[in-house]
Computed example of a mutant assay.
Amino acid sequence: MMKYATFYIADDLFGIPIYLVQEISRQAAVDPIPGNDSRIEGLMNLRGRTTAVINLKRCLFKSGVEAAPAGQRKKMIILETQDGLPQEALDLGLNAEDEPVVLLIDDVFKIIDGELESFYPPPAHVNETYIEGVMKSGEDLISLLSIPKLILDLVTYMEDTNHGS
């Protein structure tokens, strides 16, 4: 059984394997990158390392994305790096990036246990390449994000954009 960190983006609930989470913190200062993909919020200094900050709201909701109200605090999920993954994560086939990556989310929910019988494939009407499936936990439906697919899409887009100019 794997545990999942769950969080909100707008009113929707998402989850990723807890092994991929190094830390959850309040939003810190992010320096925007002019002319960059809008899904990349910018760069931040994370304990002396320059780290990309991915705005999940812009990744998952392509249109009609508005900034959170001024009083609503955003949070950051700092993802674990490949060399920081425990052996249990590697045994489960999980992979991480070599460099730190930060996900900008609206709010954290809770850690839940993922029971095998509670997993379902993504619904047919969900045309989102980053969703691996759906998990039911009590009354909550949680969309499970594929962090590798998300990062691969961002990197591919940036490489295509940079080579096309």
Rank of each mutant, 00 (worst) to 15 (best):
I9D: 01
A10T: 11
A10N: 06
D12R: 06
G15I: 00
P17L: 05
P17D: 09
P17V: 07
L20D: 00
V21R: 01
V21N: 01
E23H: 03
E23K: 07
S25W: 02
R26S: 13
A28S: 14
A29Y: 06
A29L: 13
V30G: 04
D31T: 14
P32Y: 01
I33G: 05
P34W: 00
N36P: 08
S38C: 06
R39M: 13
L43F: 08
M44K: 11
L46N: 08
G48H: 09
R49C: 05
V53Q: 04
I54H: 02
I54N: 00
N55G: 03
N55Y: 02
K62S: 10
G64S: 09
G64K: 00
A68T: 13
P69Q: 11
P69E: 12
Q72K: 15
Q72C: 13
Q72T: 15
K75R: 15
K75W: 12
I78E: 12
I78T: 13
L79F: 11
Q82P: 01
E88H: 06
E88K: 14
D91N: 14
L94N: 04
A96D: 07
A96V: 06
E97G: 03
V101P: 06
L104K: 08
L104Y: 04
V108M: 15
K110P: 07
I112C: 09
I112S: 05
E115S: 09
P122N: 06
A124E: 12
H125T: 10
T129M: 09
T129Y: 00
G133L: 03
G133C: 05
V134T: 11
